[in-house]
Design a protein around this nucleic acid. Sequence first.
DNA 1: CCAATGACGACTT
DNA 2: GAAGTCGCCATTG
Length: 110
Amino acid sequence: MQEKNYQTRVFETVCLIPIGKVSTYGAIADFLCLGSARMVGWALNKCGTYKEFVPAHRVVNSKGELSGRNQFQTPTMMQEMLEQEGISITDNRVDNFKDKLWHPELLNDY
DNA sequence: CCAATGACGACTT
DNA sequence: GAAGTCGCCATTG
């Protein structure tokens, strides 16, 4: 156990994503200065233990694709969750992705 | 300690 | 413009 450094930071940032918006691995990695989007994906992989507290479905890759949908309970759950928040999904990609994209730096205003 | 893996990204050809 | 290659850095075997 004791895995509490990298994941926690990613979880915190992901939790900050507002409803109806999505973020990318690169954005989070850059904001946390992780240096690599893979670290974010890896951290979220552990989210399976905390998925109840981490809206991982709001995190997609740079292309807006639901890359990690396969890691969810069901591959379609991610899409359902996003649609539930008002985000349309087409072909496993976020519709109007660029418009739904959100960056953690926007929290600077808070 | 060394090698392989991973929900990715950016660069090069 | 698309496809392929390398780099990222931490975790696990």
